[in-house]
Write a protein that binds this DNA or RNA. Structure first.
Lengths: 370, 370
DNA sequence: CTGTTAGCGCATTCAT
DNA sequence: ATGAATGCGCTAACAG
């Protein structure tokens, strides 16, 4: 029924080993023999049996890319970029040579699903795994992740972080590309302060995410430097109380990274502190929701309230007014992560590279009314 | 080095066959034995060898989801939704039971890469493949796709289309979920006509895509019904000339499905026909670019020019003014495709289901100035 | 440069 | 309900 390598060998009048060598290309084979084999392959319409190949070689051509939310362009852009470096351009024949199969796994931000996917990838003996986006700061989960990643690395799977801080015990992994979320957050708030804003609301992401924490810490650094920090501890959720991380700063509201959260958190912020003159959102999507809320309250942007985002997603420049935000080179970072996963590029010194975030000043922020 | 099923068997003092039966669950095993085996699995931290398992069973737990552009939320939403139905919620243990590995493959809209991915998936003996988004209408490519899909189906891979028209010879595949792009396009233009618009510009997608063609056909249907069609043939690119499908309608400009194309095509449209009072875009992303172009020309939306999109992506309601568009239930469709791929849901009668598109009238369209 | 020989780790017959 | 034996299709030594 199904054509095997042996069939090809028989038709090309060579041994199975030779066919294997031609197909894998990493071994000298006489040109004439290769021709004959390739013709047999085409004649028979042969397709390699991946599982058999992986079993024998003890490695597969799968590369996993883990994302928190693939419906969010933040991840889509990185994942797509990584895939361009991994899948290879194809040879146009559709025959598929030594390509890797780059696959995107959507964890939905759930720690359990993240681990499950890693197990699934481990089971497949994946060649590499790219983990994108912020991590969850739950100690138990972090330990489980570290253990799982160590096992993967042990089995020869290359590990790359993209837009994610390195693990505490950051051995084993090839490379970590982290975004300068803290610096970007700081510069964004500095910008608002320099415009004259003193009461700045902050719509933060989920409290347990590193991305959320780092951006918020940058924000608070800027406030503190300007003598504006009214939060008791100066940031961080490690209050040792063990209870819910009650954020004492009334100007900060946490929520998921989506539009709806931006809308509702902004209404809440406006209720709590009607005197805010600017709102900083956890990311651009949240900022869009914030803008809608501000407008629905009958206020204008930026005349009555300034609004800023983070990431500089493609739609942000088209917002009205165009959104002031912090640009992250998502495509470049994703592509680099892809190359690292393929071993096409050397890891950065120390295994960690920090990727700069650039402040993009646009129309949504201005001098406060007052 | 690496723990195998035999190791587990030894530790549990049973035969390898029994361990296999416990793990696959589809065979009677005494409760006490099962317990012992599962404990051994945990003790040894055993992870099934996927390739070996797939080789022996002649089937894998991989499910492929093909998308044109994962950075575009249109695909991200569908793919993410499909994955929720396939990956399973996980059992929270991270141990990964009988889950499938749902993986997203980004073709970048390239026919070659589409075929390559299918070959790769075929090589992996994928359990199912979901193809999302419009197809390319190149006869050679369509034939190649049909042949490839037939082979996949033959090998037991389930095939599902999502937001994609069925193949001409639509056997072999489990199900096709297609969007009513034509109807949606028609109703959108009807809406504009009913507002009083007579000169309507159209920023279309790439001419070779079914999605582009269907939406444009709907548009032209509406024009024709109103006696406004000024295109010679009444739509379609089948002019038999064999040359580039020169679209004689000066009010239609083709381009990729991105923001930049929307911007530039709109400038071109405005140059060609300064008297247009409305612009319909191929999708919401393109519409955003169109809005920017209109504004950059010093015109207001909708007072000077109405703009409409398609898809109703999450950001569209937050555009200013909110974008009139055609809503496609992307999440629901993706989820259903996922269920079909898993065999969790019966295919629609005839294997084809058309999914309705709903007109969303918002602030970006209004009565023309004149 | 090419053929021969062994497994890779597991699922599945058959037995029992 | 469990164990023993066989082979899935391929790659990787090892010869030659």
């Amino acid at each position: 029924m199904t054509v095997t390598l042996a069939d090809v060998a028989a038709r090309a009048r060579v041994s199975p080993a030779t066919v294997s060598r031609v197909l894998n290309g990493n071994y000298p084979v006489a040109a004439s023999t290769r021709e004959r084999v390739l013709r047999a392959v085409d004649d028979l319409d042969y397709v390699l049996n991946g599982p058999a190949s992986s079993l024998a070689a003890a490695t597969s051509d799968l590369v996993g890319i883990l994302v928190n939310d693939i419906a969010d362009p933040f991840f889509g852009i990185m994942a797509g970029a990584a895939q361009t470096q991994i899948g290879g351009p194809g040879d146009g024949s559709g025959r598929a040579g030594g390509e890797k199969l780059a696959v995107i796994c959507n964890t939905g931000g759930s720690p359990e699903r993240e681990l499950t996917y890693l197990t699934l990838l481990q089971r497949q003996r994946a060649a590499a795994v790219v983990l994108t986006g912020g991590a969850v700061e739950n100690p138990a989960h972090q330990a489980a992740m570290a253990a799982k990643l160590a096992k993967l690395a042990d089995a020869g799977t290359r590990i790359v972080f993209c837009g994610r801080p390195p693990l505490p015990e950051g051995d084993a992994l090839v490379a970590a590309l982290t975004f300068d979320n803290r610096g970007g957050g700081r510069r964004l708030t500095e910008h608002l302060i320099s415009l004259g804003h003193r009461r700045i609301g902050y719509v933060a992401g989920p409290p347990e995410r590193t991305t959320t924490r780092h951006r918020l810490e940058g924000h608070r650094e800027a406030l503190r430097a300007a003598g504006l920090d009214d939060s008791p501890a100066g940031g961080g959720t490690a209050d040792g109380s063990g209870g819910p991380a009650a954020d004492d700063d009334r100007l900060v509201v946490h929520g998921p990274y989506d539009r709806r959260s931006g809308y509702e958190a902004t209404l809440e912020l406006l209720r709590r502190a009607p005197d805010v003159t600017a709102i900083v959102a956890a990311n651009d999507t949240v900022a869009l929701g914030a803008c809608a809320a501000v407008r629905d309250q009958g206020m204008r942007i930026p005349q009555d309230i300034s609004v800023a985002g983070f990431d500089d997603l493609p739609f942000s420049v088209d917002a009205v007014p165009a959104l002031t935000t912090v640009r992250l080179p998502l495509f470049e970072a994703g592509a680099r992560a892809g190359r690292l996963a393929m071993g096409k590029e050397n890891p950065p010194p120390g295994g960690i590279a920090t990727i700069a975030a650039e402040l993009m000043i646009r129309g949504s922020t201005a001098t406060p009314r007052d």
